[in-house]
Amino acid sequence: MKKIISILLISNSILAQTAKLDTNTILIGQQINFIITNKVSNTEVWPAYDKFIGEKIEIIKSSKIDTIDEIIRQKFIITSWDSGIYYIPPIAFSKDNITEEILINIQTPILEENAKLRDIKKPIQESIGWSDIWPWLITILIIFLITYYLRKHLSNKKEITITSKPEIIVPSDITALRQLNKLEKEKIWQAGNVKEYHSQLSEIIRRYTENRFEFIALEMTTYEIIEELKSIVNLDDEELKNLRILLQRADLAKFAKSKPVDSENIESMSIAKRFVSSTKKAKGNE
């Protein structure tokens, strides 16, 4: 009977405090569970570990202290980074409740001498979770809302219509004829200013030619103007000949002290008017 009682007492004390490992032999860095349990009634002290349980045995993670059916329990995930045999020292919960020390063998991986060289393992791709997706969804939503707001706002704005007076484009022939008539009325050559008369007459015709035929007649000589007109417009020879006479006569008056006679002054004016009238653009083309 005594034997039975002593066995029960021993088993009771054994069951009361435990410190268990998943295995006593691990590879360097391998993580294993280390669980300690004890009866609540027998516990006076509960061990508080910081980072290490024993020499070179590191705690990776500690669970909360849990109590189930009068048993107090805590789980640790431990590992070691150095090969050798280490021990977890006994844990004293009370004077009578002390666990046994546990040996743990840390082994280095066995290298296969004949094994082929292998690449370093690639980083493990984490699976895409909801936390990866929602920032994008929110960004798209914001863009959509801004676009919608802007479109609505702009479409509601009244269209600003610029009302300005349409520019009246006076056809070049009308301008030229007006200027010629004005020059005629001023009676410049009759007042003895023949050079001025031919200078103005020549300029009116050059400006008209420049605007009407769109080339730089004001910067061209008489010869160049006639040659340009020959190449771009189908003017009859008589008209070109008359224009040449007009411009050359003006050149002589301007640069060679020439004084054309009265009939030539009148003739130049009529040549100019005829040239403008015969070369003006047809209505609707200007």
Binding site: K257, S258, K259, P260, E264
Partner: peptide
Amino acid sequence: MTEILQPDIK
């Protein structure tokens, strides 16, 4: 075209 130039130029 008759050139009526000044006497000096003529």
